[in-house]
Write a protein that binds this DNA or RNA. Structure first.
Lengths: 143, 143
DNA sequence: TTCCGTGCAAACAATTTGCAATAGA
DNA sequence: TCTATTGCAAATTGTTTGCACGGAA
């Protein structure tokens, strides 16, 4: 699975006239390896296990490239740095503002809201770009 | 209205053992004066019309104070700096990622979603902290 | 052989902080 | 008076950029 995603991303870069470098391969493998949402710093840790010589700026440039090609996205989950994931993992994120826990939700949970908002305002909600903040079950109970 | 909100905020500070300074009064008046969501820089412009000597750091410290007292909030609306508003203006924001337009929605639009998520996960969605991104009616049509 | 991609270090934007001076209560 | 608040400048954090070199195609 991670392998397929890696190859698909590399193919997209190639199809766009971009070059496949060992740096890019290491970065994309590191991003495809988990189903989580690493920050650039966290991604760098993984990349450096493969190739310690990859520069941070290169990682920034590569995730930006992936986003421009529509195969990568960044999400803001609370304060702090952006978090990155590949596009075949689109879903919503519930982030607890007390303990920081992250709960993934299928993208469709927003469908009723989307329909209502589209009907009344014409606005098409996309919203994977931001997470939904709130309080998780554990933190709600501890009061 | 802006006057009342200003007095209420000042009272909350006083009730908490804080001191009322001319800087804080100017900052809160500037924030209460509109129903919009200024960044700290934009807020500073308004503050400086009242008192040009207020330091930026003081504005940062004051909005942080308001937030700690529960009478002010910041929202992330797309990239760029946080935007601030007083707590009696709680609502959701739809932000168009194409043209940047901001549409305010009553907070209750999220109620059905809140109920569904609470029922299935126990997570209590708060969510005024982030805006909902997407594409506004105009930008959707232009394709 | 061409350019694209990369390293490096400096630039940047938004925000925070330490500390001495100042001013509310 | 006593301590919270402020100014100032420096430090931080996350990210971007200019430019010369090196490596894919």
């Amino acid at each position: 699975m991670p392998f397929e995603r890696t190859e698909r991303a590399l193919a997209a870069i190639r199809a766009n006239g971009g070059r496949i470098t060992s740096d890019r391969r290491a970065i994309i493998e590191a991003l495809a390896e988990g189903s989580d949402h690493p920050t650039v710093e966290e991604l760098a840790e993984r990349v450096w296990k493969r190739n310690p010589d990859v520069n941070l700026a290169t990682i920034y440039r590569t995730v930006e490239l992936l986003e421009n090609l529509g195969i990568g996205f960044h999400v803001h989950m609370g304060h702090g740095p952006s978090r990155w994931h590949l596009s075949d993992e689109v879903h919503q994120h519930l982030v607890c503002s007390v303990c920081g826990a992250v709960i993934d939700m299928p993208d469709e949970v927003l469908d009723p809201l989307r329909e209502q908002i589209a009907a009344t305002t014409g606005f098409v909600v996309d919203a994977h770009h931001f997470s939904l903040t709130g309080t998780c079950a554990d933190c709600s109970n501890v009061t």
